[in-house]
């Protein structure tokens, strides 16, 4: 009974308090540090080349099998990444691939606003994964 009366006044006071709501498309929410979003292919800041050499370790380690990597040998035996495709519809954002990468060539961005009408659009190619938007925290 006492609890009921206490609740009554709390609820009554709530009418005059400011709502907690974040006005979604306009306002910003700071998502927790270290939360995992879409994969991001790192780029060497000096040579502007993709660090990934296409060794294929992430392809082996990924439990969902959503990464496809292909490498191609250039002249002088140098190995270059040819194709890097991420199927977002399979990815569970576990972060295994980032942990196991020997070259430190990939990391997790904070990008999480993902929704597509067409399932084909969820397959991300190399050119989209390189885009540097993800390294800083992605606000609204």
């Amino acid at each position: 009974m006492l609890r009921l009366i206490k609740n009554f006044f709390i609820v009554f006071g709530n009418i005059f308090r400011k709502p907690h709501t974040i006005i979604y498309p306009r306002e910003r929410i700071i998502i927790p540090d270290g939360s995992r979003g879409v994969l991001h292919l790192k780029v060497d800041p000096d040579s502007l080349e993709i660090i990934c050499k296409g060794c294929g370790l992430c392809k082996i380690i990924c439990s969902q099998g959503c990464i496809t990597v292909q490498k191609r040998a250039e002249d002088k035996g140098r190995e270059v990444l040819d194709e890097f495709c991420l199927d977002l519809s399979k990815c569970i954002f576990c972060g295994n691939c980032v942990e196991f990468c020997k070259m430190n060539a990939i990391d997790m961005s904070y990008k999480y606003q993902l929704a597509e009408f067409d399932k084909k659009n969820l397959k991300l190619e190399k050119t989209e994964l390189v885009k540097p938007s993800g390294t800083i925290r992605d606000f609204w």
Binding site: V11, N14, I15, R17, P19, H20, T21, I23
Partner: peptide, 10 residues
């Protein structure tokens, strides 16, 4: 509207 405000919603 009022029940929304009671939940601290908008």
């Amino acid at each position: 509207k009022l029940t929304a405000r009671m939940d601290l919603r908008r």
